[in-house]
Design a protein around this nucleic acid. Sequence first.
DNA 1: CGACCCGTTGATATGGCTCAAACCGGGTGG
DNA 2: CCACCCGGTTTGAGCCATATCAACGGGTCG
Lengths: 267, 267
Amino acid sequence: MIADALFAAPDEIVPAQAPREASRLTRKLEAFLPFDEEERDALDHIVELNVRHFPAGSILVEPGSSPREVMIMMEGWAVRSKPIDAGRQIVALHLPGDICDFNALLTRRADCAIEAASDVRVACINHRMMSDITRRFPRIGQAFWCDSLSAASVQREWTVNVATRNARARMSHLLCELHARLFLTGEADAGGYDMPLRQTDLGNACGLTPETSSRVLARLKADRLVRLKDRRVEIMQAGALLLSAGYNAQYLHLNQTDDMFRTLFKN
Amino acid sequence: MIADALFAAPDEIVPAQAPREASRLTRKLEAFLPFDEEERDALDHIVELNVRHFPAGSILVEPGSSPREVMIMMEGWAVRSKPIDAGRQIVALHLPGDICDFNALLTRRADCAIEAASDVRVACINHRMMSDITRRFPRIGQAFWCDSLSAASVQREWTVNVATRNARARMSHLLCELHARLFLTGEADAGGYDMPLRQTDLGNACGLTPETSSRVLARLKADRLVRLKDRRVEIMQAGALLLSAGYNAQYLHLNQTDDMFRTLFKN
DNA sequence: CGACCCGTTGATATGGCTCAAACCGGGTGG
DNA sequence: CCACCCGGTTTGAGCCATATCAACGGGTCG
């Protein structure tokens, strides 16, 4: 299936043999580097200290505000967007396990809005706790760092997506990416995943209007690549979807996508 | 002028009172948090240990290769791009002072190519030295981290750029961004900056074809917003250029761009 | 001198935006 | 229970910005 597409170094990924029911955060971070018991406990502990619930539609971070805490998605999706005259542009999707506001540490004022796309559970960690844990457990800090690099890599891919691909390919690409990322935390299975966003938002994330988004998804459905039914995406033909996303180019130039395609074209 | 646009927390920026001729790296990092003498020395030292020169056009990082060193731009520009069928998409520009391959620490295989756009001087730091210095000087590590967050913020802005703006606004935006970033390291003055890229590359960075790039730049020149002459960009009307870039929207919604505009509309 | 790359200019094609209208399901209030 | 509304989706028609294709000029380098 589509998983493992974005996160290279496949031989270091050990989501399967996680020894116990791990939080999504540890599960994701351990895809970068494995923790020992102590580190895992510390992380789980700090994350449980201050969990907040928000209903769908809540504003988690106001653009221009000065958030004083790092937020970690424990459950549900959030949307990061920038205001654009009389509208917004979605620049990132924060899924369970994502650390979604590192920037709070750097900038006085948030440059993006973050909004709950579904009911969410968020772990809030203030700056002091953050520096504490990274000082006491350098490897956790390192994992955080890996995570932000990974997020940057995703962001570059989004740039490529809107800059080079047509509407159909963009949407396909987004659907593939979501699958890969959700799979990492066990949020998705081979067949698909729950997806709380409106079509409008999916389109916006690819730089498309709601109308085009609707048309493109209709075509993908008609072509039997995906099925979309009450907040769930079923991936019916992973290989065809990847081709539609324009991954074929990378495939021909064979680089880090090898492993993914090896998995994919088995069926 | 355009500087300070991208890097919030203006009251923590102290490029002016840097006590001596600092390297571009320290100069940039100290825009995030100031160092003491010891830290500054350590950083300058490690950076000078292994400097390499590359002529314009050299491939610094091959996509799919496994770079074993972090690279820091000391002089000259580099272009980060992703291969796209029979072409490439530029996803980032690495200017003097930029740390341009943190990813080497995370991923086995580079997902991007990095190419020297001009003759460049690059400091190469292997993983061991990197972890050494961040362990011995946590504040340096923190500054590195800030830098990568800042780069991520720039990346988001690029996504917005290609997703929402028309050709003219995209190009204007890019020219503004470059000014702001170069100004931070003293590479640009109020009037403009040296710019080694071809028009083709400028366009590519905004998701435009060379033809459109040419036409758009011609219009910007005709409208007396900028002047482009032998590898130099002269910014003639910063205010108008910002408007052309579509910054007006943010201005109306007043957030972190306040300071920039206050400076800008003085003249 | 020719080859090549980059930039320019023109003509044409087209993908996605815009505008507009209708539809649909769910929630709300009478 | 129905009527209504509202946000999201769907569908249609036309238009516009930018890609595409093509040809040429001008500088540079071998």
